[in-house]
Design a protein around this nucleic acid. Structure first.
Lengths: 347, 347
DNA sequence: CTGAAAGCGCTTACAG
DNA sequence: CTGAAAGCGCTTACAG
């Protein structure tokens, strides 16, 4: 008995509902009703059917069931193209949240990746039109994803997780990056920093834009001038962040707020390279609370979001949409929490 | 037009094959044959049918197709319970490899998580028996997963990715941790280290056990004594690694080989805490090449595996199994590569 | 070359 | 309370 092979493709014939019905001496309908927990069937019959089901090891063919019921009881989740090199932790957490909710509600989860081909050929729509999925979750949308405003797509239950578009028709569950940045800047300002640099990501993401807005709002609130020379817009990459940090240090920044923890790691390297001590001479703050954040040197102060809960709630809304229970657009931003460690010099 | 809601659940009736057939004035069979690329249909008819398909925006109902074809053209991938807190990077990479291969071959991927309930209720078997999936990939198996030797499960195409069991019937694609550890120890020994400590994970994982074997083999090869007091078996957690590293330093280890990069991060912290300089006084090496590895201080020397390729090849074998093309058990370990950075003191 | 028909394994009004 | 029958939307021998 090999685990892969020709021999065992022709195994025990699958047990069907008919087998169960025959063995019980009842009709298909009766078995079907028992299995869907219909109250009309008396306890005696129910018990007997269930016993035979167990004895034969019967499992309903979900494909047949789905065809008859005209739905797949499946959600599709689309992850960003891995080549985009975004925050792994975020997507891992989001996926956990989505999975937890689909599993809880007995939905299946199919996974896809937003490769250029997947997008340009509108495979996301196919999933829905082909009945492979009843609803769609799209993770980490960027502002360039205007295809998401697709009329046809909007006719299905569909929600963005982790990003959003400026479109009143598109549902989303996203981190409140603005509040996160605000908390970071407030904290840095309260530690006495007046020259706080921001190392932000590509502006085509809602999260990035919101983060920049929060940064700016924080400065205003603390009566600090907004200085574009203290602002860097770069790719989500630690090496790019390192270089940006070097530039900001030249311009006499005393604190660096980086768009992600990995970017903050690059900034820490730049600070050390410049002969300065992060956490003492220069404060550094990141975003995301990556696994390694606590183990950087010094331990990284960071902004954390409850990504799992956020993703789970978004998933719940899509399922409600599938089941015709929800109505209207769902748009919600989830608050941030500042995790203070050594790198900001406060601890 | 809201993205979630009751209103739009009753949208344009789905276009079926019958609609296409009627519009073309041909039979269902003809349309079906055209769509499956059957050569019997003349080019003229084919062209006409395809035009109507496009005009009507017809997409085949895959549920109906799968029912008729008696397969789901879907693979299920089981991830470890997130509570187990294993290496995120590994699973992200493995998932990418699996996805790339399933997508390439037109298979759908469904995702599940090995929660205690999922395992104890044998949900993995259900997926197969209910025709939700044609084959199964199980990521990160531990030796405690003896349920995987399940007779019934073995009758389906099934393969482990990233771990294996001592069972000649169970296919796997796993990292060659032994060669990785061997390379690390050789390298450390060649730098003059005689007291190399090993901070390993829980021994119930094949990878952990193999790593320990490689460590031991490396010592033997270099004529260094194997000393159990230089060996720690702990949970996959950086804090536990930090404590283990402190103990090993007390026992005068001059080099620390940690089971994962995150554990190595904990070890780095311990070294600094002890007033020693990692990369100068004490060498540290990790495994996995995590995103942050390069950005730890000092940059971490680590053992890297081509997890993506490994997962893709495993997936290919499962698909072959599904299609009745492969036979026999597939068991393969994939070689390691040592990435030398500063933390070992060589660079 | 193409159509009528049976079949995939369920669900669900509709009778009785 | 339960069964016969139609239906879900395809595929695939089998005729012609």
């Amino acid at each position: 008995m090999a685990s892969i092979g020709k021999e065992e493709r022709s195994l025990p014939r699958r047990v069907t509902m008919k087998d169960v019905a025959d063995r019980c001496g009842v009709s298909l309908s009766t078995v079907s009703l028992v299995l869907s927990g219909d109250q009309r069937i008396p306890p005696g019959t129910t018990r007997q059917v269930l016993e035979v089901v167990k004895a034969l090891g019967y499992r309903p063919n979900v494909i047949a069931r789905n065809l008859a019921r005209q739905r797949s009881k499946t959600l599709a989740v689309i992850l960003p193209d891995p080549e985009a090199k975004a925050d792994q932790r975020f997507f891992a957490e989001a996926l956990k949240g989505v999975y937890a909710e689909t599993a809880r509600q007995g939905y299946r989860l199919i996974l896809d990746v937003a490769t250029p081909q997947f997008m340009s050929r509108r495979f996301y729509l196919r999933l829905l039109k082909e009945n492979s999925a009843d609803g769609l979750l799209y993770l980490g949308a960027g502002l360039r994803d205007e295809f998401l405003a697709d009329k046809e797509l909007l006719s299905y239950p569909f929600l963005l997780v982790g990003g959003y578009l400026d479109d009143p028709h598109i549902s989303y569950a996203a981190p409140d990056e603005e509040s996160g940045a605000l908390a970071a800047v407030r904290h840095l300002a309260s530690l006495g920093h007046a020259r706080i640099g921001h190392i932000g990501g590509p502006a085509l993401f809602s999260s990035v834009r919101d983060q920049a807005a929060g940064y700016r709002r924080g400065l205003e609130e603390k009566n600090l001038a907004f200085d574009t020379s203290l602002t860097e817009e770069i790719a989500f990459h630690p090496e790019a962040a390192r270089q940006a940090a070097l530039r900001l240090l030249e311009r006499k920044a005393t604190a660096l707020f980086a768009g992600t923890d990995l970017m903050a790691a690059g900034a820490l390297a730049a600070v050390k390279e410049s002969g300065l001590r992060p956490g003492r001479d220069i404060a550094v703050v990141g975003v995301g609370d990556a696994d390694a954040a606590e183990w950087l040197d010094p331990a990284l102060t960071t902004v954390r979001f409850r990504v799992r809960d956020m993703a789970a709630e978004g998933t719940r809304r899509v399922i409600e949409g599938v089941q015709g229970e929800a109505s209207g657009v769902f748009q919600k931003k989830y608050p941030a929490e500042l995790i203070v460690r050594k790198s900001c010099g406060a601890a």
